[in-house]
Amino acid sequence: MKAGYKLDKVIFKLREGDKASSHNQCSIGGRWIEKTTDDFFKNRRVVLFSLPGAFTPTCSSLQLPGFENYCERFKKLGIDEIYCCSVNDAYTMNAWAEKMRIKNVKLIPDGNGYFTKQMGMLISKDHLGFGNRSWRYMAVITDGIVEKWWEEPGINNEGSDDDPYTETMPEKCLEYLAAGSE
């Protein structure tokens, strides 16, 4: 992926309004909604990061909470929204956001991997029982066009359990944004 890439239209399937009466029950009763890349990226400057999966170790202990914790700093540097995209279904993404108490980062379910494939980051994790997943990447996207791109080294398909987390940390994006605002 390179700066200047214009996002193609992709439809995302989200769930809205699901509720559970206790923590021992699954949230149900809501409705399906569709959003497109335009709904998320048109007329905005956003940070998008993607990761292998909800409820997985690095994603849950470092990456998602890191972006959540820095949300105000991103906003002060001109970012309208922070999005986390993963090849997971809407139910899983909503449950993960609730479990992690995420209030600021918006989670985008890419259950079929269509968006992730467009970004060139769809990989196979069949050897771990995950099926297709996203390789870790991060981008600043302005009005649907990639402004800046980061991805983890050594994209691995089938066979490796490597899960590097050095290039897609929120601090790297904050450094980039701060340098542009000076």
Rank of each mutant, 00 (worst) to 15 (best):
G4H: 05
E158H: 13
E34P: 01
T58K: 00
N43Y: 10
R45A: 03
F115Q: 03
G144S: 11
Y83E: 03
L7G: 03
D162M: 15
E34F: 11
D80V: 10
A95R: 14
W150N: 13
G129N: 07
V46E: 07
K6D: 08
L64S: 03
E182T: 14
K13D: 11
M93N: 07
I145A: 12
F12W: 05
V146A: 09
E16S: 07
Y176P: 02
T92P: 01
L107C: 14
E167N: 14
N69V: 01
M1K: 09
D89S: 06
A97G: 13
G30P: 12
V47G: 05
D143S: 12
I102H: 01
Q118N: 15
F130N: 00
D143M: 08
G159W: 04
S61C: 09
N112C: 06
L177W: 14
G29A: 06
A178N: 13
S181I: 10
T92H: 02
V46M: 04
R45H: 06
G66V: 03
R136Q: 09
Y176W: 12
E98C: 11
N104I: 08
G154N: 15
R45Q: 06
M169Q: 11
V146H: 07
S21W: 05
W135Q: 02
R73Y: 04
V87T: 02
G154H: 15
K6P: 03
G129I: 10
Q118M: 14
I123Q: 09
M121N: 02
S50P: 12
N24M: 08
L14N: 04
S86Y: 02
F130K: 01
H127S: 12
L62P: 00
G180V: 08
K117N: 08
F55I: 03
I108R: 04
K2W: 09
V46P: 12
V105G: 03
M138H: 09
G111A: 07
R45I: 02
T142W: 03
E158A: 13
V105T: 07
D38P: 02
E152H: 11
R136L: 05
W135P: 00
T168R: 03
